[in-house]
Computed example of a mutant assay.
Amino acid sequence: MRFVCFTLMPYRPLDMAERRKHRSAWVVLPNDLYDPVKGADEYDSYMDQLVYAEELGFDAVAVNEHHQTAYGMMPAPNLIASALIQRTKRVKIAILGRALPLVNNPIALAEEFAMLDNMSRGRIIAGFVRGIGTEYHATGINPAFSHEKFQEAHDLIVAAWTRPGPFSFESENYNYRYVNLWPRPYQTPHPPIWIPSQGSSETIRWAADPERRYPFLVTFSAHDLVARYLTMYRDQARELGYEASGDQLGWAAPIYVADTDEQALAEAREGIETLFNEYLSNPWEMMLPPGYTSLESTKRTMKLRAALGGRPGRMTAEALIESGTALIGSPRTVREKIQRMRDQTGLNNLVSMLQFGVLPDHLAKRNMEMFAAEVMPHLRG
Protein backbone atom coordinates (compact mmCIF):
# COMPACT_ATOMS: atom_id res chain seq x y z
CA MET A 1 0.00 0.00 0.00
CA ARG A 2 1.23 3.50 -0.83
CA PHE A 3 0.77 6.35 1.65
CA VAL A 4 0.41 10.00 0.71
CA CYS A 5 0.53 12.87 3.22
CA PHE A 6 -1.84 15.59 2.03
CA THR A 7 -2.69 19.07 3.24
CA LEU A 8 -5.25 21.66 2.15
CA MET A 9 -3.33 24.49 3.86
CA PRO A 10 -6.44 26.09 5.44
CA TYR A 11 -6.16 29.57 6.93
CA ARG A 12 -6.44 28.65 10.63
CA PRO A 13 -6.37 32.18 12.15
CA LEU A 14 -9.76 32.84 10.53
CA ASP A 15 -12.20 34.71 12.78
CA MET A 16 -14.99 32.14 12.89
CA ALA A 17 -17.54 34.57 14.30
CA GLU A 18 -16.99 36.83 11.30
CA ARG A 19 -16.92 33.88 8.93
CA ARG A 20 -20.41 32.83 10.08
CA LYS A 21 -21.78 36.20 8.99
CA HIS A 22 -21.16 35.11 5.40
CA ARG A 23 -22.72 32.22 3.51
CA SER A 24 -19.41 30.60 2.67
CA ALA A 25 -15.66 30.66 3.31
CA TRP A 26 -15.33 30.67 -0.50
CA VAL A 27 -15.60 33.55 -3.00
CA VAL A 28 -17.79 35.85 -0.87
CA LEU A 29 -15.71 35.87 2.35
CA PRO A 30 -14.10 39.35 2.58
CA ASN A 31 -10.34 39.11 2.21
CA ASP A 32 -9.73 41.70 4.91
CA LEU A 33 -10.14 38.72 7.26
CA TYR A 34 -6.76 37.51 5.96
CA ASP A 35 -3.67 38.72 7.85
CA PRO A 36 -0.58 38.37 5.60
CA VAL A 37 1.78 38.05 8.57
CA LYS A 38 -0.23 35.18 10.03
CA GLY A 39 -0.67 33.74 6.57
CA ALA A 40 3.10 33.68 6.03
CA ASP A 41 3.46 31.77 9.30
CA GLU A 42 0.84 29.30 8.09
CA TYR A 43 2.77 28.62 4.88
CA ASP A 44 5.91 27.95 6.91
CA SER A 45 4.08 25.50 9.17
CA TYR A 46 2.47 23.57 6.34
CA MET A 47 5.67 23.34 4.33
CA ASP A 48 7.48 22.02 7.41
CA GLN A 49 4.80 19.35 7.85
CA LEU A 50 5.13 18.14 4.26
CA VAL A 51 8.92 18.05 4.44
CA TYR A 52 8.69 16.11 7.73
CA ALA A 53 6.49 13.54 5.98
CA GLU A 54 9.49 12.44 3.91
CA GLU A 55 11.48 11.81 7.10
CA LEU A 56 8.57 9.74 8.46
CA GLY A 57 8.59 7.46 5.42
CA PHE A 58 5.55 8.56 3.40
CA ASP A 59 5.70 7.60 -0.26
CA ALA A 60 4.39 10.96 -1.45
CA VAL A 61 3.27 14.37 -0.26
CA ALA A 62 0.34 16.09 -1.93
CA VAL A 63 -1.01 19.58 -2.51
CA ASN A 64 -3.94 20.90 -4.55
CA GLU A 65 -5.60 23.94 -6.10
CA HIS A 66 -8.39 26.18 -4.82
CA HIS A 67 -9.23 29.83 -5.44
CA GLN A 68 -10.56 32.71 -3.35
CA THR A 69 -11.09 30.70 -0.19
CA ALA A 70 -9.88 30.27 3.38
CA TYR A 71 -10.38 26.51 2.89
CA GLY A 72 -7.06 26.07 1.11
CA MET A 73 -4.35 28.68 0.49
CA MET A 74 -2.96 27.14 -2.71
CA PRO A 75 -4.26 28.95 -5.79
CA ALA A 76 -0.93 28.02 -7.44
CA PRO A 77 0.04 24.53 -6.21
CA ASN A 78 2.92 24.30 -8.70
CA LEU A 79 4.67 27.00 -6.65
CA ILE A 80 4.32 24.85 -3.54
CA ALA A 81 5.62 21.84 -5.46
CA SER A 82 8.65 23.82 -6.64
CA ALA A 83 9.52 24.76 -3.06
CA LEU A 84 9.08 21.15 -1.93
CA ILE A 85 11.45 19.92 -4.63
CA GLN A 86 14.22 22.01 -3.11
CA ARG A 87 13.59 20.74 0.43
CA THR A 88 13.11 17.01 -0.22
CA LYS A 89 15.16 14.28 -1.88
CA ARG A 90 13.13 11.08 -2.23
CA VAL A 91 9.42 11.59 -1.70
CA LYS A 92 7.05 11.86 -4.67
CA ILE A 93 5.23 15.19 -5.00
CA ALA A 94 1.60 14.84 -6.06
CA ILE A 95 -0.19 17.92 -7.34
CA LEU A 96 -3.65 16.45 -6.80
CA GLY A 97 -5.92 18.91 -8.39
CA ARG A 98 -4.96 21.17 -11.25
CA ALA A 99 -8.35 22.30 -12.53
CA LEU A 100 -7.90 22.01 -16.30
CA PRO A 101 -11.05 23.93 -17.39
CA LEU A 102 -9.79 26.99 -15.49
CA VAL A 103 -6.58 27.12 -17.58
CA ASN A 104 -6.58 29.41 -20.61
CA ASN A 105 -3.40 27.90 -22.05
CA PRO A 106 -2.93 24.17 -21.34
CA ILE A 107 0.49 24.23 -23.03
CA ALA A 108 1.74 26.52 -20.26
CA LEU A 109 0.53 23.99 -17.70
CA ALA A 110 2.25 21.17 -19.62
CA GLU A 111 5.45 23.23 -19.56
CA GLU A 112 5.21 23.84 -15.82
CA PHE A 113 4.73 20.15 -15.04
CA ALA A 114 7.60 19.23 -17.36
CA MET A 115 9.86 21.73 -15.58
CA LEU A 116 8.89 20.38 -12.16
CA ASP A 117 9.44 16.82 -13.35
CA ASN A 118 12.95 17.70 -14.51
CA MET A 119 13.79 19.71 -11.41
CA SER A 120 12.69 16.80 -9.18
CA ARG A 121 14.27 14.16 -11.48
CA GLY A 122 10.99 12.37 -11.96
CA ARG A 123 9.19 12.77 -8.63
CA ILE A 124 6.04 14.52 -9.90
CA ILE A 125 2.53 13.04 -9.94
CA ALA A 126 -0.05 15.09 -11.86
CA GLY A 127 -3.61 15.22 -10.57
CA PHE A 128 -6.23 16.60 -12.95
CA VAL A 129 -9.73 17.75 -11.93
CA ARG A 130 -12.57 19.88 -13.27
CA GLY A 131 -12.61 21.93 -10.07
CA ILE A 132 -15.62 22.19 -7.79
CA GLY A 133 -18.46 24.56 -8.61
CA THR A 134 -17.20 27.46 -6.51
CA GLU A 135 -14.07 27.70 -8.66
CA TYR A 136 -16.28 28.77 -11.58
CA HIS A 137 -17.75 31.59 -9.50
CA ALA A 138 -14.20 32.63 -8.56
CA THR A 139 -12.89 32.63 -12.14
CA GLY A 140 -15.96 33.65 -14.14
CA ILE A 141 -15.63 30.62 -16.43
CA ASN A 142 -18.81 29.03 -17.78
CA PRO A 143 -19.21 25.65 -16.01
CA ALA A 144 -21.41 24.28 -18.81
CA PHE A 145 -18.28 23.71 -20.90
CA SER A 146 -16.15 22.25 -18.11
CA HIS A 147 -16.40 18.62 -19.24
CA GLU A 148 -15.33 19.26 -22.81
CA LYS A 149 -12.62 21.75 -21.78
CA PHE A 150 -11.26 19.26 -19.26
CA GLN A 151 -10.98 16.46 -21.80
CA GLU A 152 -9.57 18.68 -24.55
CA ALA A 153 -6.99 20.24 -22.20
CA HIS A 154 -6.02 16.78 -20.97
CA ASP A 155 -5.55 15.53 -24.54
CA LEU A 156 -3.45 18.55 -25.45
CA ILE A 157 -1.22 18.23 -22.36
CA VAL A 158 -0.60 14.51 -22.87
CA ALA A 159 0.12 15.08 -26.57
CA ALA A 160 2.56 17.87 -25.70
CA TRP A 161 4.33 15.56 -23.24
CA THR A 162 4.56 12.57 -25.57
CA ARG A 163 4.49 13.58 -29.25
CA PRO A 164 7.58 14.83 -31.10
CA GLY A 165 7.13 18.48 -31.99
CA PRO A 166 6.35 20.72 -33.55
CA PHE A 167 2.82 19.62 -34.39
CA SER A 168 -0.55 21.36 -34.60
CA PHE A 169 -3.52 20.76 -32.30
CA GLU A 170 -7.11 21.70 -33.00
CA SER A 171 -10.20 21.18 -30.86
CA GLU A 172 -13.38 23.05 -29.99
CA ASN A 173 -11.69 25.16 -27.31
CA TYR A 174 -7.95 25.03 -28.07
CA ASN A 175 -6.20 25.63 -31.38
CA TYR A 176 -2.42 25.79 -31.73
CA ARG A 177 -0.34 25.98 -34.88
CA TYR A 178 2.78 24.90 -33.01
CA VAL A 179 3.01 22.51 -30.05
CA ASN A 180 6.68 21.86 -29.35
CA LEU A 181 7.34 21.37 -25.64
CA TRP A 182 10.68 22.49 -24.20
CA PRO A 183 11.57 20.96 -21.78
CA ARG A 184 10.08 17.49 -22.18
CA PRO A 185 9.08 15.57 -19.00
CA TYR A 186 11.76 13.64 -17.13
CA GLN A 187 9.52 10.58 -16.72
CA THR A 188 8.67 8.40 -19.72
CA PRO A 189 6.18 8.72 -21.28
CA HIS A 190 5.03 11.39 -18.81
CA PRO A 191 4.34 11.96 -15.09
CA PRO A 192 1.65 9.64 -13.68
CA ILE A 193 -1.84 11.14 -13.86
CA TRP A 194 -4.26 10.63 -10.95
CA ILE A 195 -7.93 11.63 -10.95
CA PRO A 196 -9.42 12.80 -7.62
CA SER A 197 -13.23 12.89 -7.52
CA GLN A 198 -16.23 12.63 -5.23
CA GLY A 199 -17.70 9.86 -7.35
CA SER A 200 -18.94 11.23 -10.67
CA SER A 201 -19.96 8.28 -12.85
CA GLU A 202 -18.79 10.18 -15.93
CA THR A 203 -15.36 10.69 -14.38
CA ILE A 204 -15.12 7.02 -13.38
CA ARG A 205 -15.85 5.86 -16.93
CA TRP A 206 -13.36 8.32 -18.38
CA ALA A 207 -10.54 7.44 -15.94
CA ALA A 208 -11.05 3.68 -16.34
CA ASP A 209 -10.81 3.75 -20.13
CA PRO A 210 -8.13 1.27 -21.31
CA GLU A 211 -6.23 4.08 -23.03
CA ARG A 212 -5.85 5.83 -19.67
CA ARG A 213 -6.31 3.48 -16.67
CA TYR A 214 -5.70 6.46 -14.39
CA PRO A 215 -5.69 5.96 -10.62
CA PHE A 216 -9.06 7.15 -9.29
CA LEU A 217 -9.21 8.71 -5.80
CA VAL A 218 -12.49 9.04 -3.92
CA THR A 219 -12.41 12.11 -1.66
CA PHE A 220 -14.48 13.33 1.32
CA SER A 221 -17.00 10.52 1.15
CA ALA A 222 -18.64 8.10 3.56
CA HIS A 223 -17.33 4.53 3.78
CA ASP A 224 -20.22 3.04 1.79
CA LEU A 225 -19.80 5.56 -1.02
CA VAL A 226 -16.06 5.01 -1.23
CA ALA A 227 -16.63 1.26 -1.57
CA ARG A 228 -19.39 1.83 -4.14
CA TYR A 229 -17.36 4.16 -6.36
CA LEU A 230 -14.18 2.06 -6.27
CA THR A 231 -16.25 -1.03 -7.07
CA MET A 232 -17.87 0.92 -9.90
CA TYR A 233 -14.40 1.63 -11.27
CA ARG A 234 -13.50 -2.08 -11.11
CA ASP A 235 -16.79 -3.03 -12.80
CA GLN A 236 -16.25 -0.43 -15.50
CA ALA A 237 -12.75 -1.79 -16.16
CA ARG A 238 -14.13 -5.31 -16.53
CA GLU A 239 -16.72 -4.06 -19.01
CA LEU A 240 -13.87 -2.50 -20.96
CA GLY A 241 -11.98 -5.79 -21.05
CA TYR A 242 -9.39 -5.69 -18.28
CA GLU A 243 -9.00 -6.13 -14.51
CA ALA A 244 -8.20 -2.94 -12.59
CA SER A 245 -5.23 -3.22 -10.25
CA GLY A 246 -5.13 -1.88 -6.70
CA ASP A 247 -2.72 0.80 -7.89
CA GLN A 248 -5.62 2.31 -9.86
CA LEU A 249 -7.76 2.72 -6.74
CA GLY A 250 -7.37 5.28 -3.98
CA TRP A 251 -9.09 6.87 -1.01
CA ALA A 252 -8.50 10.34 0.41
CA ALA A 253 -9.71 10.98 3.96
CA PRO A 254 -8.99 13.04 7.08
CA ILE A 255 -7.29 10.80 9.66
CA TYR A 256 -6.41 11.31 13.32
CA VAL A 257 -4.63 8.79 15.55
CA ALA A 258 -4.12 8.95 19.33
CA ASP A 259 -3.55 6.42 22.10
CA THR A 260 -7.26 5.73 22.57
CA ASP A 261 -10.48 6.31 20.63
CA GLU A 262 -11.64 8.74 23.32
CA GLN A 263 -8.45 10.79 23.20
CA ALA A 264 -8.47 10.89 19.42
CA LEU A 265 -12.07 12.15 19.34
CA ALA A 266 -11.39 14.84 21.94
CA GLU A 267 -8.28 16.13 20.20
CA ALA A 268 -9.62 15.96 16.65
CA ARG A 269 -13.13 17.33 17.31
CA GLU A 270 -12.53 21.04 16.73
CA GLY A 271 -10.35 20.44 13.70
CA ILE A 272 -12.70 18.04 11.92
CA GLU A 273 -15.86 20.01 12.73
CA THR A 274 -14.38 23.30 11.52
CA LEU A 275 -13.20 21.59 8.33
CA PHE A 276 -16.70 20.43 7.38
CA ASN A 277 -18.85 23.15 8.97
CA GLU A 278 -16.78 26.31 8.49
CA TYR A 279 -14.27 25.78 5.68
CA LEU A 280 -15.96 23.24 3.39
CA SER A 281 -19.61 24.19 3.80
CA ASN A 282 -21.15 25.90 0.78
CA PRO A 283 -24.72 26.64 -0.30
CA TRP A 284 -25.98 24.42 -3.11
CA GLU A 285 -26.03 27.23 -5.65
CA MET A 286 -22.29 27.85 -5.13
CA MET A 287 -21.29 24.18 -5.15
CA LEU A 288 -23.38 23.28 -8.20
CA PRO A 289 -23.78 26.22 -10.59
CA PRO A 290 -26.11 25.59 -13.56
CA GLY A 291 -24.45 23.46 -16.21
CA TYR A 292 -21.74 22.09 -13.92
CA THR A 293 -23.21 18.59 -13.69
CA SER A 294 -25.08 16.35 -16.11
CA LEU A 295 -28.87 16.17 -15.96
CA GLU A 296 -28.66 12.74 -14.32
CA SER A 297 -26.28 13.99 -11.63
CA THR A 298 -28.40 17.10 -11.08
CA LYS A 299 -31.51 14.96 -10.46
CA ARG A 300 -29.62 12.84 -7.91
CA THR A 301 -28.45 15.98 -6.14
CA MET A 302 -31.96 17.43 -6.03
CA LYS A 303 -33.24 14.21 -4.43
CA LEU A 304 -30.47 14.41 -1.84
CA ARG A 305 -31.26 18.04 -1.15
CA ALA A 306 -34.93 17.21 -0.63
CA ALA A 307 -34.01 14.37 1.72
CA LEU A 308 -31.89 16.79 3.76
CA GLY A 309 -34.70 19.30 4.02
CA GLY A 310 -33.10 21.73 1.59
CA ARG A 311 -29.77 22.20 3.35
CA PRO A 312 -27.52 19.89 5.40
CA GLY A 313 -27.19 20.61 9.10
CA ARG A 314 -23.97 20.95 11.06
CA MET A 315 -21.83 17.83 11.10
CA THR A 316 -20.51 16.42 14.35
CA ALA A 317 -17.26 14.52 14.78
CA GLU A 318 -19.27 11.50 15.94
CA ALA A 319 -21.37 11.50 12.77
CA LEU A 320 -18.31 11.86 10.54
CA ILE A 321 -16.66 8.92 12.32
CA GLU A 322 -19.79 6.79 12.15
CA SER A 323 -20.17 7.34 8.41
CA GLY A 324 -16.51 6.60 7.82
CA THR A 325 -15.92 10.03 6.27
CA ALA A 326 -13.23 10.67 8.89
CA LEU A 327 -10.96 8.00 10.38
CA ILE A 328 -10.43 8.95 14.01
CA GLY A 329 -9.34 6.63 16.80
CA SER A 330 -6.58 4.51 18.25
CA PRO A 331 -3.98 2.98 15.91
CA ARG A 332 -5.85 -0.32 16.01
CA THR A 333 -9.20 1.32 15.20
CA VAL A 334 -7.77 3.28 12.28
CA ARG A 335 -5.85 0.27 10.95
CA GLU A 336 -8.95 -1.90 11.00
CA LYS A 337 -11.05 0.68 9.15
CA ILE A 338 -8.43 1.07 6.44
CA GLN A 339 -7.98 -2.69 6.17
CA ARG A 340 -11.73 -3.21 5.89
CA MET A 341 -11.87 -0.82 2.93
CA ARG A 342 -8.83 -2.48 1.41
CA ASP A 343 -10.46 -5.89 1.73
CA GLN A 344 -13.65 -4.60 0.10
CA THR A 345 -12.05 -2.80 -2.81
CA GLY A 346 -8.42 -3.86 -3.17
CA LEU A 347 -7.23 -0.23 -3.09
CA ASN A 348 -3.49 0.43 -2.83
CA ASN A 349 -3.40 4.24 -2.49
CA LEU A 350 -4.31 6.04 0.73
CA VAL A 351 -4.18 9.84 0.73
CA SER A 352 -4.13 10.81 4.40
CA MET A 353 -5.09 14.30 5.52
CA LEU A 354 -3.36 14.47 8.89
CA GLN A 355 -3.90 18.19 9.45
CA PHE A 356 -7.43 19.48 8.92
CA GLY A 357 -9.46 22.52 9.88
CA VAL A 358 -7.97 24.40 12.82
CA LEU A 359 -5.98 21.40 14.12
CA PRO A 360 -2.81 22.98 15.60
CA ASP A 361 0.73 22.14 14.57
CA HIS A 362 1.67 20.12 17.66
CA LEU A 363 -1.32 17.79 17.29
CA ALA A 364 -0.82 17.49 13.53
CA LYS A 365 2.84 16.55 14.04
CA ARG A 366 2.05 13.94 16.68
CA ASN A 367 -0.73 12.58 14.48
CA MET A 368 1.73 12.21 11.58
CA GLU A 369 4.22 10.43 13.82
CA MET A 370 1.70 7.98 15.26
CA PHE A 371 0.20 7.25 11.85
CA ALA A 372 3.64 6.61 10.36
CA ALA A 373 4.82 4.45 13.26
CA GLU A 374 1.68 2.50 14.20
CA VAL A 375 -0.56 2.38 11.12
CA MET A 376 1.56 2.48 7.97
CA PRO A 377 3.90 -0.46 8.76
CA HIS A 378 0.95 -2.82 9.34
CA LEU A 379 -0.54 -2.07 5.91
CA ARG A 380 2.58 -1.85 3.76
CA GLY A 381 2.58 -5.45 2.59
Rank of each mutant, 00 (worst) to 15 (best):
C5G: 04
L8K: 10
D15G: 15
S24I: 11
A25C: 14
L29V: 13
P30S: 06
N31F: 13
L33E: 13
P36L: 10
K38C: 05
G39S: 13
A40Q: 10
A40W: 05
L50Y: 03
L56P: 05
V61H: 11
V63K: 01
Q68D: 05
I80L: 04
Q86A: 00
I93V: 08
L102C: 08
A108F: 06
L109H: 05
A110I: 07
E112W: 06
E112F: 01
F113Y: 00
D117N: 00
D117M: 02
N118W: 11
M119D: 04
G122E: 03
G122S: 03
G127K: 07
G127E: 02
F128C: 03
R130Q: 01
I132G: 03
E135I: 08
A138H: 13
G140W: 11
E148L: 06
Q151T: 15
I157F: 01
V158A: 09
A159F: 11
T162V: 02
E170L: 01
V179W: 12
V179T: 13
V179C: 14
L181Q: 04
L181S: 03
Q187W: 13
P192M: 07
I193P: 09
W194T: 06
G199K: 10
I204F: 02
W206C: 05
A208Y: 08
D209E: 11
E211G: 09
L217Q: 09
V218E: 12
A222W: 01
L230H: 13
Y233L: 09
A237V: 14
A237Y: 11
E239S: 05
Y242W: 14
Q248L: 14
L249A: 12
L249K: 09
A252N: 11
I272Q: 07
L275R: 03
S281Y: 15
M286F: 15
M287V: 04
P289L: 09
P289Q: 06
P289Y: 10
Y292L: 01
L295A: 15
T298P: 06
K303S: 12
L308K: 04
G309C: 00
G309Y: 01
R311S: 12
T316L: 06
E318C: 00
A319T: 08
L320F: 10
L320E: 13
I321R: 15
E322C: 00
G324R: 02
T325W: 07
L327E: 08
I328C: 00
S330Y: 00
T333D: 11
E336M: 07
F356K: 04
F356G: 00
M370S: 10
F371H: 03
R380V: 05
